[in-house]
Every structure is written in structure tokens, then in C-alpha cells.
């Protein structure tokens, strides 16, 4: 395995782990549900995407072919993350989950 591939894999792994962790920290410490929604939809999705990419580089640099399934999982996660966030936000608005005092504007009730 070439040194370039090794560095690429290591960097991608660390970036992926960092964003996954940041997404979870956001989920744990942000003040209300709607702000918590931001961490998992963006940071965690990108983190897992980076981990997948490192797996693709790892196995293709060992000459085992390009991991199409990893790429499919990544595409699937990027397609479904906004949908999950949207439908969860709708459910939260329907239930009437509270927001922090600093939030400007109001969710609709329709």
C-alpha cells in the first residue's frame, strides 16, 4: 500500500470520527429539539460519509476492487438524512415541543 493511500485513509478516518463525535455532542448539549436536529443531519452524515470513503480507499488500494456498496450506503444516507429530519420536525411541531426562549419566530400549527 502506498504512503499516499495510507495518509488519505488515516485523515479520512479521523475527519469522519471527529464529525460523528461533534454531531453527537450537538445532540447531547444543544438546548432544544429543533437545534438538536442540526447536529445529526449534517455533521453525523458527513462523518459517516468520510468513514465510508476511507473504507473505499482502503479496499481499492489493496486491489480488492472499488467498494460500490459503501458508496451506495453513503448516497442512501445523504438522501434519507434530510427526509428523516423533515418528518421528525413535523412530528415535533405537531406535538408542540418547546423551544428555547431565544428562538425568534414560531412554528406553524396547521
Amino acid at each position: 500500500m502506498s504512503a499516499v493511500a495510507e495518509y488519505t485513509i488515516a485523515v479520512l478516518l479521523l475527519v469522519g470520527g471527529f464529525f460523528t463525535l461533534v454531531g453527537a455532542i450537538g445532540l447531547a448539549r444543544l438546548p432544544d429539539f429543533f437545534t438538536r436536529l442540526h447536529g445529526p443531519t449534517k455533521a453525523t452524515t458527513l462523518g459517516v460519509g468520510a468513514v465510508m470513503l476511507s473504507s473505499v480507499v482502503f479496499f481499492s488500494s489493496r486491489g480488492e476492487g472499488v467498494g460500490v456498496v459503501e458508496i451506495l450506503i453513503t448516497v442512501f444516507l445523504f438522501l434519507t438524512a434530510p427526509v428523516s429530519a423533515n418528518i421528525l420536525a413535523k412530528a415535533a411541531m405537531h406535538i408542540g415541543v418547546g423551544t428555547t426562549g431565544q428562538t425568534r419566530g414560531k412554528p406553524w400549527d396547521q
Binding site: 469522519g16 460523528t20 454531531g23 453527537a24 445532540l27 429539539f33 438538536r36 436536529l37 447536529g39 445529526p40 453525523t44 452524515t45 462523518g47 459517516v48 468513514v51 450506503i73 444516507l77 428523516s84 421528525l88
Partner: peptide, 12 residues
């Protein structure tokens, strides 16, 4: 939301 994120972490 926590379960969903846990799922994604399991994939990772």
C-alpha cells in the same frame, strides 16, 4: 432522533 443517530453510528 437519538435512535436514528445511533443507527448511523452503528453503520460507522
Amino acid at each position: 432522533l437519538a435512535l436514528d443517530t445511533l443507527n448511523i453510528n452503528a453503520i460507522a
